[in-house]
């Protein structure tokens, strides 16, 4: 419950403050969002599996974002930035779908 409220609070803060994103950061935003979603769904599944660990959650989130951003940065330097970000999104997307499937099995047994 508390993390859900935290998520909501973060969204509200973002909407109210409308911070300006520096241009150099913008290409990484979509990747960071996908990485964050992956961490969130992984965490929900871990809770339902009964093996949630707060440190693992935080570390997996941060490392997801950092690694995804790094891959995109590397891709940009090599001239294949858009292809690599597509790759990252596909990989994380597949993970999100599998985790959501597991969550669904837990909650609706369907």
């Amino acid at each position: 419950m508390i993390p859900a409220l935290g998520l909501l609070a973060g969204i509200v803060i973002g909407i109210v403050l409308k911070p300006d994103v520096p241009i150099w950061l913008q290409p990484y935003l979509p990747i960071a969002v996908i990485a964050a979603l992956d961490a969130v769904f992984g965490a929900v599944r871990a809770v339902l599996d009964g093996i949630f660990d707060d440190k693992v959650f935080v570390v997996s989130f941060l490392s997801n974002v950092v690694v995804a951003a790094f891959i995109v940065y590397l891709g940009d330097q090599l001239g294949v930035g858009s292809q690599l970000s597509t790759g990252v999104i596909v990989v994380l997307g597949v993970r999100i779908f599998s985790n959501v499937a597991a969550i669904r099995r837990h909650l609706f047994s369907a």
């Binding site: 993390p3 998520l7 973060g10 803060i13 973002g14 994103v21 964050a36 949630f52 935080v58």
Partner: peptide, 22 residues
């Protein structure tokens, strides 16, 4: 499993929410 409601988790949740909104 550890508790879900730790400070660490809450802070990360706020950060993620902020990221989504931004």
């Amino acid at each position: 499993h550890t508790s879900v409601g730790t400070v660490l988790v809450t802070l990360t949740a706020i950060l993620i929410g902020l990221l989504l909104a931004v």
